[in-house]
Design a protein around this nucleic acid. Structure first.
Length: 492
RNA sequence: GACCCAUUAGCUCAGUUGGCAGAGCACUUGACUUUUAAUCAAGGUGUCCCGCGUUCGAGCCGCGGAUGGGUCACCA
């Protein structure tokens, strides 16, 4: 399809190349043009017709449809704001220019100048007086009525998807607004936006398989980050009291409608705050963003009406498991008992699982799906939360919460573990889990321990998956519909 | 990773029992000086995802593979 060898091109593509060759032969090579002065956008003219009527304007955009082909033609021009009709008349443009107009193709990019008026059918239009071809399109755009539907093509050639499916463009405009609104919220609270390394010698801050790469000059392996967490906490050590980062992280795991190998995380850290303060902030953040973006405190998502009115429901993980299964893991203190209880519930449990993993399995299997409205699940077992501070009133659990909406996790937060002795012990226990086969256990990070020894104040931390939040607020079912260029296998 | 479904013209899709490959849009030529998925007339459009097999004959049947989508498992 993109092969340049003329012999291999189909008729439609040959014709376009011939048209370009003709333009070049007539010294009208569009690719020699470097700029065009745009004075107005299509949508602005449409929305402000009264004011714009009879004014001369210049617009640039892509030809999207052609009607009429006599001595008068109506072509639609699509710019970044929308579409407007061009009124092209032989008398106005002259014979030679009008001949060129007739050979324009859908997809060509034009710069036009003319007067704003309404046709007798009431259609806002530009009476074109000057026209230049700014780029010749050598490919054929999809059909005007059905658009581009094939998901494979839509994702691989997102640029075409964006041209022909206006609702797709809307989603990505909303995505940008959501991120901007989050920044606004955090900036107003005095948070500092920072950037930390994507490449590192250790991939920590979460339990996931990293992408491995190689630094040639140093001749060492390097890892793409799987979380933002550890360097951000080190910045709190360094004396920034409120920091956040919104950036890409990478996890070398499966892909499906809610997982892309690279995705965007927000993490915030606030000194002298605990997980309950973070919980309050999350409630505030969600209603702030939802109402700014949708104008409402309730959104429709995949057939559910989700309300962001605070307070969100709150429940300890073990209490929720008890509510949905009848099994009270709170009174179970040995792995053996927990294993027996989990197996009795029908869980397929591997051997050597820590107690907390069994509780988490029970939660994932029996509770997660049931949490439709925003719910804070709190007090995760300590052995599955290697970076969270213990709840000192009951050290089996941590001062942690995850936010669930419609059965999916939207946020993860805790009172950060700032005791270097405890952190060291947790890392060692993770190393033990790694040695007994858990590939995703957290690696030992000596530099991070050192920073805790220097002294991390009590700190509340938060992570939110931005892509999923965008899905929620734009009612998209697949993460691929909120990522411009989702990860794809090579075509061949 | 397992299972199910899809893949036919640039795009959206039909394709009967295995017997010459189809439509609409788009495109080409012509007509048309206010059209709205413009209209009218004529015309061209193909690695039927790839490979192997069965058959006189495969878009269609069988086996293997690719890509995508869905469900499940795992992960955010």
């Amino acid at each position: 399809m993109t092969i340049e060898n003329g012999e291999n091109l189909n008729e439609l593509l040959k014709i376009r190349r011939e048209k370009l060759a003709k333009l070049i032969a007539e010294d009208k090579d569009p690719f020699k043009i470097t700029k065009f002065k745009v004075t107005h956008l299509a949508k602005y003219i449409e929305d402000n017709f009264e004011q714009m009527e009879n004014q001369t304007v210049s617009l640039a955009g892509r030809v999207m449809s052609k009607r009429g082909q006599g001595k008068v033609s109506f072509y639609d021009l699509q710019d970044s704001s929308g579409r407007i009709q061009m009124f092209l008349k032989k008398d106005t443009l002259g014979d030679e220019v009008y001949e060129d107009v007739k050979t324009l193709d859908i997809g060509d990019i034009l710069g036009i100048t003319g007067e704003v008026f309404k046709t007798k059918m009431g259609q806002t239009s530009i009476r074109v007086e000057n026209i230049s071809i700014l780029s010749k399109s050598l490919q054929i755009l999809p059909e005007k009525f059905h658009g581009l539907k094939d998901p494979d093509l839509r994702y691989r050639q997102r640029y075409v998807d964006l041209i022909v499916n206006p609702s797709v463009k809307e989603v990505f405009i909303t995505r940008s607004r959501i991120i901007k609104t989050i920044r606004e919220f955090l900036d107003n609270k005095g948070f500092l936006e920072v950037e930390t390394p994507v490449l590192g010698n250790i991939a920590g801050g979460a339990t996931a398989k990293p992408f491995v790469t190689h630094h040639n000059a140093l001749d060492i392996p390097m890892f793409m980050r799987i979380a933002l967490e550890l360097p951000l906490k080190q910045l709190i050590v360094g004396g920034f009291d409120k920091v956040y980062e919104i950036s890409r992280v990478f996890r070398n795991e499966g892909m499906d409608s809610t997982h892309n190998p690279e995705f965007t995380m927000l993490e915030t850290y606030e000194a002298y705050a605990d997980y309950e303060a973070v919980m309050d902030m999350v409630e505030e953040l969600f209603i702030y963003v939802a109402s700014k973006i949708t104008g409402s405190d309730t959104v429709e998502f995949q057939g559910h009406s989700i309300s962001f009115k605070p307070p969100f429901k709150r429940g300890r993980m073990v209490d929720l498991v008890k509510e949905y299964t009848g099994v009270d893991f709170d009174v179970i203190d040995t792995v053996e008992e927990a294993y027996a209880a989990g197996t009795k519930l029908g869980l397929q449990l591997e051997k050597n699982l820590p107690l907390g993993k069994i509780i988490e399995e029970a939660f994932d299997t029996f509770v997660e799906d049931k949490l439709i409205q925003p719910t804070f699940v709190t007090h995760h077992p300590t052995d599955i939360s290697p970076l969270a501070k213990k709840d000192y009133s009951n050290p089996k659990y941590t001062e942690r919460f995850e936010l669930f909406i419609k059965g999916a996790e939207y946020g993860n937060a805790f009172s950060e573990l700032n005791d270097p002795i405890d952190q060291k012990a947790r890392f060692l226990s993770q190393v033990e889990q790694k040695n007994s086969g858990d590939e995703e256990a957290h690696p030992y990070d000596e530099d991070f321990i050192n920073s805790l020894e220097v002294g991390l104040p009590p700190t509340g931390g938060l992570g939110i998956g931005i892509d999923r939040l965008v899905m929620l607020l734009t009612d998209q079912r697949s993460i691929r519909d909120v990522i411009l260029f989702p990860t794809m296998k090579p075509e061949k």
